[in-house]
């Protein structure tokens, strides 16, 4: 449960395009780490290397090491499927499986793991839905399709789906960008709760959100179109938003560009 991540000198490519260069950072357990930065700076790309989702895109590859509690997830002997089972992910737009019921959506990951005990599955489903603050809204229609929920509910369903497998780390890729302010608030509250048990990394284009939910913030930037994004600075969130080390960070958070 709740492991730390150390990223060592990672370079990320899409075919020949060098998308992100030389990223080194640490994500402490049971903390929320936010990645901010302008569009195209590679913050989502970095996030997707943390659970080996980057390589799903044809031609994409990663150089360097990503250590999960000291174990390199890019070691040749490591199975990416196993990595993704221990590092959960929530995406930008809610993506419940449309042909599955709410309950089956929550349990999808566990069923992949081979869990069959019905009673245990029911318990886990309830626990995960409670964990995602969705239980009270859906407990009477667990067998209805997940696509019938509102956008915010769907996103919380996806969070429930991710935490049902009790991952070591939870990655969130702009989880609120498709949601209204009230749903956004609900998810932000949820992130603060989840921090008790999980290591969380969240990408957001919303600086206020980063300031509200995270303990440390990494600022990514890209010098120009066609160039590689890089990590400019990573520090305590408070420091980033009050007194950052780098001028570029200062410019970005004060709204002078981006």
């Amino acid at each position: 449960m709740a492991k730390r991540i150390d990223v060592n000198d990672v370079n990320i490519y899409y075919g020949k395009f060098h998308a992100v260069s030389d990223v080194t950072l640490s994500v402490p357990p049971k903390h929320v780490t936010a990645f901010i930065g302008p569009s195209g700076c590679g913050k989502s790309t970095v996030l997707r290397t943390l659970n080996r989702m980057h390589e799903v895109i044809p031609g994409a590859r990663v150089e360097g090491k990503v250590l999960l509690d000291g174990e390199n997830i890019y070691a040749p002997s490591v199975d990416p499927v196993q990595v993704r089972r221990t590092i959960g992910m929530v995406f930008q737009s809610p993506n419940p499986f449309p042909t599955m019921s709410i309950k089956d959506n929550v349990l999808a990951g566990l069923k992949l793991g081979g869990e069959k005990n019905r009673q245990r599955l029911d318990e886990i489903a309830e626990h995960a839905l409670r964990g995602a603050n969705l239980w009270n809204e859906v407990k009477d229609r667990l067998n209805k399709p997940g696509g019938g929920l509102s956008g915010g509910q769907q996103q919380r369903l996806c969070i429930a789906r991710a935490i049902a497998v009790q991952p070591d780390v939870l990655l969130m890729d702009e989880p609120c960008s498709a949601l209204d302010p009230i749903s956004t608030l609900a998810i932000e509250d949820l992130i603060s709760d989840l921090k008790q048990d999980y290591t969380i990394v969240i990408v957001t284009h919303n600086m206020q959100q980063a300031a509200r939910v995270s303990d440390q913030t990494g600022f990514f930037n890209v010098p120009g179109v066609g160039e590689s994004g890089r990590l400019v600075e990573i520090n305590d969130t408070e420091k980033i938003f009050s007194n950052p080390d780098e001028q570029a960070t200062e410019d970005y958070i004060s709204g002078r560009f981006g």
């Binding site: 989702m53 799903v56 993704r84 089972r85 995406f91 499986f97 497998v165």
Partner: peptide
């Protein structure tokens, strides 16, 4: 097939 669904399944650790 929507990429979001495919990625959702892969991210859960589906083969």
């Amino acid at each position: 097939t929507p990429v979001t669904h495919i990625e959702g399944a892969l991210a859960l650790g589906a083969t």
